[in-house]
Amino acid sequence: MSSENRITGHYAVPPELSGKRLDQVAAGLISEHSRSRLQSWIKSGALTVNGKKCKPRDKVMLDDQLELDAEPEAQVTWEAEPISLDVVYEDEHLLVINKPAGLVVHPAAGHAAGTLVNALLNYAPEVENLPRAGIVHRLDKDTSGIMVVARSLVAHTSLVEQLQTRTMGREYEAVVVGTLTGGATVDAPIGRHPTDRKRMAVVPNGKPAVTHYRLVERFAAHTHIRCKLESGRTHQIRVHMAHVRHPLVGDPVYGGRLRLPKGTSDELREVLADFNRQALHAQQLTLEHPETGEILSWEAPLPDDMIELIEALRKHAKELEQSAY
């Protein structure tokens, strides 16, 4: 098999992973592959440390060099399903889609079918041979917007590298509770919540996470913001905005109870009560094409439910402003 069709990579052990087991370090550095696959590569010698075959439980130290050189094989066993996709762009290497809110990305407990992966296997069967069916970054089930999927190993390797080096640009739009006075940066590490393993939280020993946000429009008691990520931690924007006491509207995990602004009209109360997902949309994606090197960018317009939410907040703010005179 030619080298260009193999799964390869070189990784240096960073300070925060020094002294940990090889399988743990591999999972942290090569997160686009499943833990079971990484384990099998370690045992087979496809994943080595400083050129030597090791056991999964062996400890690795700062600056040790992990080298991956493995043959691709069928990576998924899920079924293809004829689920419609909103395809924004496609070629032999890339598939860019606008994911609707409510669509789960990966099959998991409680969602064995009806996911984006099932749809991809039907639309582009070749992704069966790629790690995680070509998905290199995820959106939460109830987050809408732009996602890129690799259709080739060349693309997969390039996209993972762009994510790791933070050269892939991702911007999101969100509506948060409270009135922000200006943009800012949240630089706070994220990891599993210490007592609730289903949630993420800002924790001292978490992975570095940086979110930049700026104001788009301020309402009476809410703010429409645009966020740019430097990292891609699970639930990052949701956790960071809740951390600075401005949780996303409708967030069922980090938003707390419904808070209604003073003088809320019946119309706005109904819109806020019915908005039962986090008000978060992946609006723009910019990356370097894995084959041509061309810088490409795509945008996905706000979905109808967020447009309705913003219009209701804007109308309420104007009504309050007019009643003050």
Rank of each mutant, 00 (worst) to 15 (best):
S34K: 10
R35I: 02
S36K: 12
R37Q: 12
R37D: 11
Q39R: 15
S40L: 07
W41F: 10
W41D: 08
I42W: 08
K43V: 09
S44N: 11
S44E: 12
G45Y: 00
L47F: 00
T48P: 01
C54D: 07
P56M: 10
R57F: 12
K59C: 07
V60Q: 13
M61V: 06
M61Q: 12
L62C: 02
L62E: 13
D64N: 07
D64L: 00
Q65R: 10
L66Q: 00
L66E: 00
E67W: 04
E67I: 13
E67V: 14
L68D: 01
A70V: 08
E71M: 13
Q75N: 10
V76H: 04
W78D: 15
E79A: 13
A80I: 10
E81Q: 15
E81A: 14
P82D: 14
P82H: 12
S84R: 15
S84Y: 03
S84C: 09
L85P: 06
L85F: 02
V87N: 05
V88C: 05
V88L: 15
Y89K: 01
E90F: 02
E90W: 02
D91N: 01
D91C: 01
H93R: 01
L94E: 06
L94M: 11
L95I: 01
I97K: 09
P100Y: 11
P100E: 10
A101N: 11
V105T: 14
V105N: 08
P107Y: 05
P107K: 08
G110D: 09
A112M: 06
A113R: 14
A113H: 15
G114C: 10
T115M: 06
N118T: 04
L120P: 11
L121S: 06
N122Y: 15
Y123K: 15
A124C: 14
P125F: 11
E126H: 04
V127M: 05
E128A: 12
R132E: 00
R132I: 02
A133E: 09
A133Y: 04
A133T: 04
V136C: 08
H137N: 11
L139K: 07
L139S: 04
L139N: 05
D140E: 04
K141M: 09
D142E: 14
S144T: 07
G145C: 09
I146F: 04
I146Q: 04
V148R: 08
V148S: 07
A150P: 02
R151K: 15
L153D: 01
L153N: 08
V154G: 13
H156P: 04
T157V: 07
V160E: 07
V160G: 05
V160Q: 12
E161G: 07
E161I: 00
Q162Y: 00
Q162H: 03
L163I: 12
L163V: 03
T165L: 03
T165W: 00
R166C: 11
R170T: 02
E171G: 01
E171D: 12
E173C: 11
A174S: 12
V176H: 07
G178Y: 09
L180H: 02
